[in-house]
Design a protein around this nucleic acid. Structure first.
Length: 95
DNA sequence: CGGATGACGACAC
DNA sequence: GGTGTCGCCATCC
């Protein structure tokens, strides 16, 4: 595994301010290499060190792992949640 | 080396 | 709008 790649992804996630979110695809594009799935793997392995709940799917669904803890954290940070705890990605995603 | 799997994404129905 | 299918890339079996 590329620790370099991991560091790049984690850095980008840490750079996401509270109240804002980003998507796996966006991260993958930002890093340049690999794909959304690689980003997902990185989060699964080393995501415990970063605000992983600010990383959502392209359709606005929060990471469904951890038993839905993400929604609570997002709401607490002031992220505007839509019906069923979905995020308006187009409005909330980091530019 | 071939096939299955996954914190994904886009498209068709 | 929910569900199914296919494509993607790295890992695991």
């Amino acid at each position: 595994m590329d620790d370099d790649y991991v560091e790049a992804v984690l850095a980008l996630v840490e750079d996401v301010p509270a109240g804002r979110v980003t998507t796996y695809g966006a991260l993958a594009r930002a890093v340049g290499t690999g794909g959304p799935r690689q980003v997902g793997r990185v989060m699964a392995l080393h995501g415990d060190a970063v605000p992983w709940w600010r990383v959502v799917h392209a359709d606005g669904r929060p990471a469904t792992c951890h038993g839905g803890t993400a929604v609570d954290r997002l709401r607490e940070e002031g992220v505007p949640l839509m019906a069923r705890g979905r995020v308006d990605v187009r409005a909330t995603e980091v530019s």
